[in-house]
């Protein structure tokens, strides 16, 4: 089947992309103004210590040799040790500590828009120009318009004073959670822990997903509006298909096609955007770690995290292609046929 060979080709194309991504990362890190040896010894300015650090870090080697080592280490997943941020700790261990928080945050800030924004958009598209459509559409614009850094601060302010504002305390409501600390992610299979972790991440996930929620709502609405006026929908009606089945069989699947790149595109944004939100909510995730590593010139950490992010983006891309291939049988018919 041509669809699946198309998909396989797309996956293979990801290999050179990972290669180029890592190469560009190396070039930027080594050609830029960052001097890791200076960062390691700190402000003392001791030249002898400086040269010995340079030697021990391998920075006196020729650049091409460093590049080969760098690539070899990354592709064999040997990320080495942190130099500055958390000196001597394996990068893997750091990722193990920080990544789950970001993944938990990212997961919910993709899921919330998906399960709130999309259904609202579809509903508005099916009932255009009604009061509920106006409410949903207006809400979508408002959500989209509020900048994350501002919304995050407002959320923190409102939730910490929920007692005075709404008469109940958010922190102790249902389960005990804090507003500005990393969520507890131990033993999530216990319902209580799961709910606690969910509640702890909810405000941050809402903030991070707010723009996506508005986007997906508005584009979902347009996609449904467009699809339900297609001729094949009228044909389906003309052959007596019940209204409900027309919506879920003939309208939804076609309306999803333009939404796939929107949803996966939002997932990319969350990678970069999470730094701000993580900072405000003190989540201490990968975004925070990456930020700290960059300003401290912790080269192995920055390089490894970049590699991690590149793999993540490529992964999201593959998921996007997979979704396309599943939803739209015309995939792989480049140019030919409508």
């Amino acid at each position: 089947m041509s669809r699946w060979s198309y998909f396989a080709r797309r996956v293979l194309l990801m290999i050179p992309i990972v290669f180029f991504g890592t190469t560009i990362t190396f070039v930027i890190l080594r050609m830029g103004p960052i001097d890791p040896a200076a960062a390691v010894i700190g402000a003392s300015g001791d030249t002898e210590a400086y040269t010995s650090v340079r030697r021990s870090l391998g920075l006196d080697q020729p650049l091409w040799l460093q590049y080969v080592d760098y690539l070899r280490d990354l592709f064999t997943l040997q990320f080495g040790y942190s130099w500055v941020v958390n000196r001597g700790r394996p990068v893997w261990e750091l990722i193990g500590v920080y990544a789950p928080r970001t993944i938990w945050l990212g997961f919910w800030s993709v899921m919330l828009p998906l399960f709130v924004g999309l259904p609202l958009g579809f509903y508005a598209g099916l009932n255009p120009n009604t009061l509920s459509d106006y409410v949903a559409s207006f809400g979508g614009i408002v959500w989209r318009a509020m900048p994350n850094f501002w919304l995050a601060v407002i959320f923190v302010a409102v939730l910490t004073q929920s007692e005075q504002l709404f008469g109940f305390q958010w922190e102790s409501w249902l389960v005990e959670t804090n507003i500005v600390t990393p969520p507890e992610l131990q033993r999530l299979w216990v319902p209580e822990n799961f709910f606690g972790a969910f509640k702890a991440i909810l405000p941050a996930a809402l903030v991070l997903g707010s723009a996506s929620m508005g986007n997906e709502m508005r584009i979902g609405r347009t996609a449904v509006l467009e699809t339900k006026n297609e001729n094949y929908v009228e044909t389906a009606r003309a052959k007596g298909v019940p209204g409900r089945k027309i919506v879920y069989k003939h309208v939804f699947r076609n309306a999803l096609i333009p939404l796939v790149p929107i949803i996966t595109g939002e997932a990319f944004l969350l990678l970069g955007g999470s730094v701000l939100v993580e900072t405000v909510f003190s989540i201490n995730g990968l975004g925070y770690l990456f930020y700290a590593a960059t300003i401290n010139a912790d080269l192995p950490l920055v390089g490894s995290l970049m590699f991690f992010f590149i793999l993540l983006s490529v992964g999201i891309n593959i998921v996007q292609d997979l979704l396309y291939t599943l939803i739209d049988p015309r995939v792989g018919y480049g140019g030919e046929g409508a």
Binding site: E230, N231, Y232, E234, T235, A236, R237, A238, K239, G240, V241, P242, G243, K249, H250, R253, N254, I257, I327, D328, P329, R330, A338
Partner: peptide
């Protein structure tokens, strides 16, 4: 719905757009 198709069926003008592209 019982009349449509069952009693009266319809063939539309543009065969390119009257079939749903995502189903066989």
């Amino acid at each position: 719905e019982s009349v449509r198709g069952g009693g009266v069926a319809m063939v539309f003008q543009d065969p390119l757009s009257t079939l749903n592209p995502v189903y066989t």
